[in-house]
Amino acid sequence: MEAQKVEMFIMSNSKFFESHQINGIRERLIAIDDSKWAMISTIQLKDPTTILIVSILAGSLGIDRFMLGDTGLGIGKLLTCGGLGIWTIVDWFSIQKATREKNMQKIQQFLY
């Protein structure tokens, strides 16, 4: 794909991915075919900040995990009052990373 297009994509979407994975994404994007651009530019990526806010407000109900698509973990969190409160605390600090990894998985389907 054109370098300029890739650069634009990276610039507008860099907050959705882990910083150490960005270079890999850039290289893959340049390598892949132009026909995939339509797909890639329309992927719905989840905003880590939004998920963090949800996690702080409704973390002990597991809503953050449901939003990420981890239904099983969400149910686990809901049934145990947020993992007896401990899991809730841990998730406040790790949900952003989890979101970025989820986004990475999503884009990876199209990159390879």
Partner: peptide
Amino acid sequence: VEVCFIKH
């Protein structure tokens, strides 16, 4: 010991 944040 109360563990539930919401209740707490």
